[in-house]
Write a protein that binds this DNA or RNA. Structure first.
Lengths: 259, 259
DNA sequence: CAGTGGTCTAGACCACTCG
DNA sequence: GAGTGGTCTAGACCACTGG
């Protein structure tokens, strides 16, 4: 194709071709056509399919590797990682395993506690770049690993972007990010995140079923779409216990479970 | 140059050309020829200087961007970030500033407490891939921001790679990583890192000049060279207080201080 | 051995910034 | 308008994997 061929460009904007490649791949994942562990067609096949050059496909795929969504093996192929999208980029590991040199990522399970409408307070409004008191969805999630309550999330999403999120989401059982990708076509990706330590509120302690008056680890996270709009602001308080948080999104897995 | 031209290849190994570009740039930084905030020559000039194609230079520079060492601005150029190498990839930010939407990275100051020889215990040996009881350098560092003691590091480096580290290092006043780059030609880069929470030892509490019996945040870090050898294992206990840890290495800075 | 991703080149145009 | 980095193409060879 020539450089100026516009036929694969979206109507709304002149998204770079390699980002289109990324979108398509992620759509496949979001729609279940491509599941964790499955292998993609090779670069040349994708290039032909998307009508771009093989180098452009490569750039898109490599970008998704840095996002932790794909893994590539020389001589083998490109497959989808087992990343738990809603939890974030950093898996948990048992400290005892870490000390013994065994690395076995643990991805906790989510349980939606509530979805409701709230008005943005000063912090939420600023983080989401919306007006003060503008309507937002507030979603509360607890994270478990076995019987251990690991974390409590409060996620805020502007209602203006997701007018009927609750009705539709309640009929789903997939994750929030997969749902948003599937229903709204918006791929969320971490823009910024930070950690700090502070005590939990009474409510948080209650939901985490703990009462220890200690400093908990807190985790703030902003997510943007490919259009650079901030769609989600999430704060999480963590009760790590004997677990550690692995800061490396890229953890080479075995490639034996070829589809 | 032709693809098989070997004259810029190192004797020891067939390092990819773009990694050679990275090494050169980092050497410039390590030797002080290139300081934080300074701008690099453009891609074409670098390509001519290193005798590689402009695309290869681009790949190397972009890789250093993901390492947090460089920043690139379209239409302007490529400059060196103000990253504090020894501290790690994640700067601190005052929580009050975070809540107000102002982002001002704080890089704490290091103070070397001690450099001594130790023998590798089970964990250190396994992390560094060396033999049990093999000789290692143990370096203790405290980190301050103003009068606040923020963190205490214990860094372990195998003596086999740095036979005379202490003698030479004690005459230096640059950072450890810059020193190692300059003296041994080894560029250290984070391989793996993780966080967990636990109480500090009495000794750690004493060195941090605190006695609170709380759960502190701990930070383990492994660093490798470009040859993929693990050269350093470091554990840090953090007393964050009112500070937060910013997990984004890429923080766009203004580009007004052009050299 | 065929097939995959990894590196490298050369050349083109686009988008942004600044004087 | 000149200069920078960003995107894109086409084509080549290398290095690794597996049957």
């Amino acid at each position: 194709m020539s450089y100026n061929n516009v036929k694969v460009q979206p109507v709304k904007a002149q998204l770079p071709l390699y980002q289109l490649v990324m979108q398509r791949i992620v759509q496949w994942i979001g729609q279940g056509q491509l599941k964790a562990g499955q292998y993609l067609p090779n670069e040349w096949q994708l290039a032909e399919q998307f009508d771009v050059s093989q180098g452009t496909v490569r750039k898109g795929l490599n970008e998704l590797v840095t996002w932790g969504l794909l893994q590539r093996y020389q001589g083998i192929g490109t497959c989808v990682t087992h990343k738990n999208w809603d939890w974030g980029d950093y898996p948990l590991m048992a400290m005892s395993k870490v000390l013994m040199g065994k690395s076995e990522a643990l991805w906790p399970m989510a349980e939606i506690l509530s979805i409701g409408v709230d008005t943005a307070d000063a912090e939420t409004a600023r983080q989401l770049h919306i007006n003060l008191a503008e309507a937002v969805w507030k979603i509360r999630i607890v994270w478990r690993h076995g019987c251990h309550l690991i974390a409590l999330d409060e996620a805020y999403l502007p209602m203006r972007y997701f007018p009927d999120l609750n009705v539709r989401f309640l009929h789903q059982r997939s994750g929030l990010y997969a749902f948003i990708l599937h229903e709204y076509g918006i791929l969320l990706h971490t823009l910024q995140q930070y950690f700090w330590q502070q005590c939990c509120t009474e409510e948080q302690l209650c939901l985490l079923k703990t009462q220890q008056n200690i400093l908990y680890l807190h985790w703030g996270k902003l997510s943007k779409g490919m259009d650079s709009i901030v769609y989600e602001w999430r704060r999480r308080c963590l009760n790590l216990g004997e677990l550690s948080l692995q800061m490396n999104s890229i953890m080479p897995e075995s490639h034996n479970e070829k589809n």
